[in-house]
Simulated assay, not measured.
Amino acid sequence: MRLMFRSFGQRDAAQELMDDFTTGGPELRTALRHLRRLNRLFGASAPALYGIRRLWIEADKPRRFSILDVGAGSGDVNARILQWADANGIDLTITLADVTEEACEEARQLFREEPRVRVQRSNVFELAEGCADIVTASQFAHHFDAGELPRVVDSMRRASRLGVVISDIHRHWIPWAAVWVTTRLISSNKYILNDGPLSVAKGFRADDWKRLAEALDCPALFYAWRPLFRYAVVIGKRELHTMHRSGME
């Protein structure tokens, strides 16, 4: 309950239970299934699609391209991206990458009838150079502190041909309270109860993205606040971006 009285001025440094790789098993897989419900309720796919569409337009709307989603969990946010590809006649392939076998198994099960999706167990720091057109990370960046995050994003940039899309949570008391209540209504899973609200407290504000751009020496980094307290961050490899300063701090 300590977070009930915390300040959201700084990112929480506590480790999420999902980041302890010495645990896992069936309870973690259950957590991933419950997380899919939370993602649907809070519109987690929308900021990722916003960023992907931006890079797609800047690349002159290719009819065929690939996405690598790192830290993908069960990859459920990509279902909406596949629907968008269908609607626009795009030949899209998606690779879901996660470091835990539990997440990979959940992703394989979820997309077992989807030939456009493949799953691989891999670390974000071990990505092959230029292995996908767009590299995405949905609700993954907040697992890293400010010192680690530039290295994570650099690895994603090297792996991409067109650019990087990061979608993550706006650190604010409103989404924290909404997640705290919702997790207790839909789940008794220890990962969900602990990590759901904590992920909001570990989320971002506009100044965090400005500092990331400075750390990367990347003035082209673009960020935008999106509905339901999310951020979409886009780092393209074309020189078409200008720094966007959000109205929501």
Rank of each mutant, 00 (worst) to 15 (best):
D76V: 03
A215M: 05
A213F: 00
L127E: 00
N194C: 11
D19Q: 08
I134D: 02
G43K: 10
V179A: 15
L228T: 06
E126C: 01
A85T: 04
R108W: 01
G75Y: 07
S160C: 13
R112D: 04
C104G: 10
D208P: 01
H142F: 08
P175A: 14
D98Y: 06
L185C: 09
D20N: 14
A178W: 15
V179M: 15
A201V: 08
A79H: 11
C104Q: 02
A215Q: 05
L221K: 07
S7P: 03
G163F: 12
E126R: 13
P115M: 07
E27N: 06
S167E: 09
S45C: 10
A206V: 06
I174Q: 14
R121M: 12
W176A: 02
W209G: 07
D19F: 12
D69Y: 13
M4I: 01
G71S: 11
L82A: 06
W56P: 03
E214Y: 03
I94F: 06
W225I: 10
R161H: 10
E126N: 14
E114T: 14
R40E: 02
R245W: 10
E148R: 14
L41C: 07
D217Y: 09
L127V: 04
R108P: 08
G163L: 10
D60E: 14
A48K: 05
I134H: 04
N88P: 08
T93F: 07
Y50E: 12
G203F: 06
T182L: 15
A213D: 00
I169C: 04
S7T: 05
P197C: 07
T136L: 04
V200T: 01
R230Y: 07
K210P: 00
L216V: 07
A79V: 05
G51E: 05
E148P: 10
E114A: 04
L221E: 03
F140L: 10
A159K: 08
